[in-house]
Design a protein around this nucleic acid. Structure first.
Length: 283
DNA sequence: GTGATTTGACCGGA
DNA sequence: TCCGGTCAAATCAC
């Protein structure tokens, strides 16, 4: 763990603490991932697995408490809100408006400067009941009106954990920059291999991994925020949502870019742009 | 009646 | 000051 002397002087101590907790979580997640890679070891050493899971859950609770302390009401009257800076966004261009597996509710429509087509604004239908912060924007592209540019913002905290995306690179088209992403709805995930690039996920029967089930229960039962490292179990470098990108039927020509991901998640896991904005970080 | 969509107003950031 | 993102009342659809 890093000593406080390695932090920039002007970094608030609260932020340092939060980063340290997240780092701990990352380390524990890696440990858990290693264990998941060796199912036989898990059978013989289930105690240590439970210890790791307990630690992760403890850290998560800590950060959640911190988040609730930090969170301020950003909206006090109509139209008064804090625009999110550096929130996780993902943009894709698709020729079809396909169902991404989430329920969206339209909340606005605007004419955008230098754009021939209006932009439509959608938010998760579960925003009110579950406080889900995910939104998306849909706009026809100027060049090809038959194509849509879809921008996803924020995490699905409504039920997102088991809808983690699966990035699949077609072996036959490895040079193609396009990325295919699919989901396994409500499926737990374990490591496997897809192609040569990513560990893949495959449904894991919960009775085989009761501790994961425990994490899932806690994830669902508590306050609907998102655990970066928990979602990263088995995901390797694949970041968590904004990912409601695709469930099925994605076009080969679709282009997906994760703009903020590159700044938010380093190759060693994730980094934190703005720890004050807990809504963007913590489930 | 209930939930979704439309649309003008409002606010923050650049 | 302008523009983009969001709010919320009015309206629509079922």
């Amino acid at each position: 763990m890093e000593s406080s002397s390695s932090w920039p002087e002007n970094l608030p101590s609260s932020r340092i603490k939060a980063i340290q907790e997240l780092t701990k979580g990352q380390i524990l997640t890696n440990r858990l991932r290693e264990l998941l890679d060796r199912p036989k070891q898990i059978e013989s050493d289930s105690k240590s697995v439970n210890v790791v899971v307990d630690k992760i859950l403890k850290i998560r609770r800590k950060i959640r408490m911190k988040a609730s302390e930090t969170k301020t009401h950003v909206k006090t009257k109509r139209g008064c809100y804090k625009r999110r800076k550096n929130s996780l966004t993902t943009t894709k261009v698709t020729s079809t408006l396909i169902d991404d597996g989430y329920a969206w509710r339209k909340y606005g429509q605007k004419t955008i400067l230098n754009s021939k087509h209006q932009r439509n604004y959608y938010r998760c239908s579960h925003k009110n009941e579950k406080g889900c912060q995910a939104t998306k924007q849909v706009q026809k592209t100027n060049e090809e009106p038959s194509k849509y540019m879809i921008t996803y913002n924020g995490f699905h905290t409504c039920n997102s954990l088991y809808k983690a995306p699966q990035i699949i690179r077609e072996p036959s088209d490895i040079r193609d920059n396009s990325t295919l992403i699919s989901f396994e709805t409500n499926a737990l995930i374990e490591n496997n291999k897809v192609g040569t690039c990513f560990p893949s996920m495959k449904h894991t029967p919960k009775e085989d991994f009761p501790y994961l089930d425990r994490m899932k229960q806690e994830q669902v039962s508590s306050s609907d925020h998102y655990a970066p490292w928990v979602s990263m179990v088995g995901l390797s470098q694949i970041p968590p949502e904004p990912m409601s990108i695709m469930s099925s039927g994605i076009d080969r020509e679709d282009v997906v870019s994760s703009e903020v991901l590159s700044s938010t998640y380093s190759t060693h896991g994730y980094e934190i742009d703005d720890i004050n904005d807990f809504d963007d970080l913590i489930w």
